[in-house]
């Protein structure tokens, strides 16, 4: 496919998406007229102040909740229900405490009707990829926060998603664990076996967004609307402490503060 064709046929197209909630008869506008397109092999971050509708936008993209206005087009088709080619990593890990690591990961495949043997094989492979080898039989209570989020990642990656959605994946981790896991995500992203085509991450951490992404979309305060979209013009591996990242972080932070 030529560059020109790629430009005119995005994998994901968010078109004029607005979302309103009605509470006790009062309408609240969460998102207003949000539009952007995503092409192949991109790591995108959506940043914005808390309450700007970032997480709601992620849910709309996946088809978990419909927009009030506008539409989400995935490969030319309008999203009307949960998109099976996407999976989500949650801030709160969302693991089942009564299932082992391997069972939690396999769960992602059960819904796809894959035979048990194959499920186990694929789950074991992913568990190893994310550094959970020897923890297959552990229960979530035996794991640190960082390990729990690795299970969350494995469960999302096991279905081999084309688009991986991450909702504040590092924000409930301590700073040291988050540092290590960010590197891990970048490593998984560049690994052909586990790599989804596209990653869309929602975060309130501007520096984290710039460090990890190819492109950052900045939302305003509620109702969230796109106020800036920019490419992070920096080759990988990146230097987290480069003046470029610091300058951009300052610039964006002053926009949304």
């Amino acid at each position: 496919m030529s560059t020109k064709e790629r430009l005119i046929t995005p994998i994901l197209d968010v078109r004029n998406v607005s979302k309103e909630f009605t509470q006790r008869g009062k309408k609240t506008s969460i998102l207003k007229d949000v539009s952007f397109s995503i092409h192949e092999h991109e790591f995108i971050s959506i940043v914005g102040p808390s309450g700007c509708g970032k997480s709601t936008l992620l849910r709309i993209i996946m088809g978990l909740t419909p927009p009030t206005k506008g539409e989400v087009i995935y490969k030319g088709e309008r999203t009307q229900s949960v998109n099976p080619r996407m999976s989500m990593v949650f801030q709160s890990f969302a693991l089942f405490p009564w299932l082992t690591v391997l069972e939690n990961v396999e769960l992602g495949l059960e819904a796809q009707g894959i035979p048990k043997e194959q499920r186990k094989k694929r789950a074991l492979k992913i568990v190893e990829e994310v550094g959970l080898e020897d923890f297959e039989d552990a229960y979530p209570r035996e794991l640190s926060g960082g390990m729990k989020q690795r299970v969350g990642l494995a469960r999302a990656l096991v279905i081999d998603p084309e688009i991986l959605l991450m909702d504040e994946p590092f924000s409930s981790l301590d700073p040291l664990t988050a540092e290590g896991l960010r590197e891990e995500v970048i490593r998984l992203w560049s690994d052909k076996f586990t790599s989804p085509e596209i990653v869309i991450m929602v975060t309130h951490n501007v520096e984290e967004a710039i460090y990890l992404s190819d492109r950052v979309i900045v939302l305003s305060q509620r109702p969230g609307t796109v106020i800036l979209e920019f490419d992070v013009d920096m080759p990988r591996p990146r230097d987290k402490r480069s003046p470029y990242i610091y300058e951009l972080t300052d610039k964006i932070t002053s926009l949304i503060a």
Binding site: S144, G146, M147, D174, P175, L176, T177, A178, E179, G180, L181, E183, D239, K240, R241
Partner: peptide, 16 residues
């Protein structure tokens, strides 16, 4: 400490 803390520390140290 958790393993993840040691990894995080080494990653930061490398950045510096």
């Amino acid at each position: 400490v958790h393993y993840s803390h040691v990894i995080g520390l080494l990653e930061v140290l490398e950045d510096f």
